[in-house]
């Protein structure tokens, strides 16, 4: 599984959907993921990729991590993995 597939699998599990039902254009709201579900997804992503995601649930819009769509989350994670590799 590549990064995109893994992230989609994590988000799909949180949304109780099949990965095929999660498109890159979907927003978390579309998928029915609430704030607690988002924090749990970020935890699962951190565990899966052994990275630290700079997300502050207190002020999501100020975080240096774009959660506006599944595609933006995947892009952010790809960047973090590249940055935190060494």
């Amino acid at each position: 599984m590549d990064i995109k597939e893994q992230v989609i699998a994590i988000i799909a599990e949180q949304a109780v959907l099949e990965p095929s039902d999660v498109s890159p254009d979907s927003t978390l709201e579309d998928l029915g993921i609430d704030s607690l579900g988002l924090v749990e997804s970020i935890f699962a992503i951190e565990e899966a990729f052994d990275i630290s995601v700079p997300f502050n649930a207190n002020a999501p819009e100020e975080s240096d991590f774009d959660i506006s769509s599944v595609a933006s989350i995947i892009r952010g994670i790809e960047t973090l993995i590249a940055e935190q590799k060494d």
Partner: peptide
Amino acid sequence: NRVHPFVVP
């Protein structure tokens, strides 16, 4: 160094 987000609730 990381715990599940639901620990407090």
